[in-house]
Write a protein that binds this DNA or RNA. Sequence first.
DNA 1: CGCGAACTTGATATTTGTCAACTAAGGTGG
DNA 2: CCACCTTAGTTGACAAATATCAAGTTCGCG
Lengths: 248, 248
Amino acid sequence: MSNPLIMKLEHGAQLTDEDRAVLQHLTGTTRRVARHMDISPEGERPEDVHLVMQGFACRYKTLRDGRRQIMAFLAPGDFCDLHVAILGEMDHSIGTGWGCTIVDIPRSTIEDLTAHHPRITRALWWATLVDEGTLRAWLVNMGQCEADRQMAHLICELHVRLRVVGLAGNDSFEFPITQEDLADTLGITNVHVNRVLQDLRAQGLVEWKSKRVRIPDVERLRAFAEFDPKYLHLNRRSEDERPFWGTP
Amino acid sequence: MSNPLIMKLEHGAQLTDEDRAVLQHLTGTTRRVARHMDISPEGERPEDVHLVMQGFACRYKTLRDGRRQIMAFLAPGDFCDLHVAILGEMDHSIGTGWGCTIVDIPRSTIEDLTAHHPRITRALWWATLVDEGTLRAWLVNMGQCEADRQMAHLICELHVRLRVVGLAGNDSFEFPITQEDLADTLGITNVHVNRVLQDLRAQGLVEWKSKRVRIPDVERLRAFAEFDPKYLHLNRRSEDERPFWGTP
DNA sequence: CGCGAACTTGATATTTGTCAACTAAGGTGG
DNA sequence: CCACCTTAGTTGACAAATATCAAGTTCGCG
């Protein structure tokens, strides 16, 4: 079983075999979205809920003068717009930075799900609240840290999140993003991103070569970034402690 | 009727008279919390849900070296930690910057409420999702805007939010916060806050004298800040359009 | 192999931070 | 009601972080 949604939600609630079966058979249309396309543009009132199955999407907002801020990376197992129905319409856009596979799930399917499966409902709200916690962590990061710490923190976060869905090894993961996109994420220029990365490489904290990120010493990078994964609220952490924290 | 919680939730769902009556009689212990006190410290697993009734609280996180980032201002009608039970424990702190009145509501009371009043439940989730939208707006603001725009944007947001609960007039409101706290909010130094404020004053965009903020020309400030209140998802906006947008 | 996108580098400008002093405001005890 | 004292706000000189602009260089793909 390698459904990223299930792998993720296991960390947010105690699922039963029945819950897992229900999630495994969530029906929807699977489609491949090419790079630089919008999945769900700002202002729309989406009929479907969108779930990332493979690759990465991102939440972003474009300002009038063309500047762009990326507010979240959406990895496999992440919903793009789960509860947007309550708010009415999207106040930002969802795009694929680099191409990904999406499942479009009718809103009614989700409503069915939450009407009959309380543990799943709870897990879905857990995921939403973790998204909010992640946003808070990004805000702290952006407000209080210099660019090198910010970058390191982001890498640490991605490492943990991708491990949860089986997409990161002990010390590395694929992350096909340009330095320009990173700049729009951290709120700095692409030139500065480049310099910061070189600096991290020179310090031996990060290797980042052609879409693959490697972290030679996870503990050292976490210390540098003052990274504490608590905000991700991965409740089954005890089980995963060993693999998460690297070489035994 | 001037219960700020009801005034706010009216914007998130269609409440009935019965809903309003239930909210009006929400039971809890009212207490006054002095300035610079914590209502709900990081790491705690609070028994009660905390609702601000008067004055301001803030969500914040302190880093090891003492730097602090304020992530939200909590005004009358705002819950501090409504859904924290799902996450397990607080990943940040709630404090009173400047003294406020809080109602401690037992978690069981909230659970009763959501079990029997679907419209209220929906309104409470709406409030949580708006908090998340606000956080996204702050992130965009912080990532893409210079300090003067950030400050202007924050003032525009507070103006709208305080109008909703009847605490702001057409062009002014009370906001008892120090420049130091503002600095921790925008991620800049207090010295820079001071200079930015003087700049805004010189441009005639904002008056801010002894805890009272006045906006001589709301439209002009909004244009300067590129402020669009859509992210606050105030659904009854049509009714309020006139007073919100100033002189007819 | 060639072309466009992504990445890298250098020189310089702007924004913001740091430090340190000073002034104004508000609250308290005499 | 005043003197004092603490806190908040203001100012200036200078340093550091980051942006801007412009020109390479490398990489990956057709």
